[in-house]
Simulated scan of single mutants.
Amino acid sequence: MKEILLTIADTGSEKNIGIGDSVKLVLEEVSTSGYVWEIDGELPEQLKMTQTEYSLKHGNTIGGSGNSILNLQAVEKGCAVLQLKYWQPWNGEASVENRFNISFVIE
């Protein structure tokens, strides 16, 4: 089993992973702006969310940016597309500022 680290630079790519492999997705987020990264649609059944967290970049700076970290594990063979959006949920789809998508082939 291995851990795969992904960032915004990986959007649009395809990764081959194995059952039991971990995926750590690190996306920059300014939570004080109200914008958050959220899964767009459903989490593919081949993946399981194991943990989510937010990590400040520079200590406890007020208004500072940080990283939204999603930890996933491949639990089933198949092809899966993971899609996320960076938005203000209460403002709806018009507030989407960025998107992340990646395809997994799980063997």
Score class of each variant (00 low, 15 high):
residue 17 I to Y: 13
residue 11 T to W: 04
residue 34 G to L: 11
residue 37 W to L: 05
residue 76 E to F: 10
residue 22 S to C: 08
residue 59 G to F: 08
residue 77 K to N: 05
residue 44 P to G: 08
residue 87 W to D: 07
residue 63 G to F: 01
residue 90 W to P: 00
residue 25 L to F: 14
residue 16 N to H: 12
residue 36 V to G: 00
residue 72 L to S: 02
residue 40 D to P: 00
residue 7 T to D: 08
residue 74 A to L: 01
residue 39 I to E: 04
residue 19 I to D: 02
residue 4 I to T: 10
residue 55 S to C: 01
residue 78 G to N: 03
residue 11 T to C: 03
residue 33 S to Q: 07
residue 59 G to I: 07
residue 61 T to Y: 11
residue 53 E to Q: 14
residue 9 A to M: 10
residue 49 M to R: 11
residue 81 V to D: 07
residue 63 G to E: 00
residue 87 W to T: 15
residue 16 N to V: 09
residue 24 K to A: 08
residue 49 M to D: 02
residue 36 V to D: 03
residue 77 K to S: 05
residue 26 V to E: 11
residue 67 N to G: 00
residue 16 N to T: 10
residue 13 S to T: 15
residue 82 L to H: 12
residue 47 L to A: 06
residue 26 V to G: 01
residue 68 S to V: 01
residue 41 G to M: 09
residue 27 L to H: 03
residue 56 L to G: 12
residue 77 K to C: 00
residue 29 E to K: 09
residue 65 S to C: 01
residue 7 T to F: 14
residue 48 K to T: 08
residue 25 L to C: 12
residue 44 P to K: 12
residue 77 K to G: 00
residue 70 L to G: 06
residue 25 L to H: 14
residue 83 Q to F: 02
residue 36 V to A: 05
residue 69 I to Y: 09
residue 58 H to P: 00
residue 56 L to T: 05
residue 54 Y to W: 09
residue 37 W to S: 13
residue 38 E to A: 14
residue 2 K to Y: 06
residue 49 M to V: 14
residue 13 S to N: 12
residue 67 N to F: 10
residue 52 T to Q: 12
residue 29 E to P: 08
residue 14 E to P: 00
residue 27 L to T: 04
residue 39 I to S: 02
residue 24 K to Y: 10
residue 87 W to A: 14
residue 87 W to P: 01
residue 39 I to V: 15
residue 79 C to L: 01
residue 88 Q to N: 07
residue 34 G to K: 10
residue 72 L to A: 01
residue 67 N to L: 08
residue 58 H to F: 15
residue 29 E to T: 13
residue 19 I to K: 09
residue 55 S to M: 06
residue 52 T to L: 05
residue 55 S to V: 13
residue 75 V to Q: 10
residue 77 K to D: 03
residue 90 W to F: 13
residue 66 G to H: 06
residue 12 G to R: 08
residue 42 E to N: 14
residue 3 E to I: 01
residue 89 P to Y: 05
residue 41 G to C: 06
residue 35 Y to P: 02
residue 5 L to E: 13
residue 81 V to I: 13
residue 55 S to T: 12
residue 79 C to T: 10
residue 24 K to E: 11
residue 75 V to F: 11
residue 41 G to N: 05
residue 5 L to A: 09
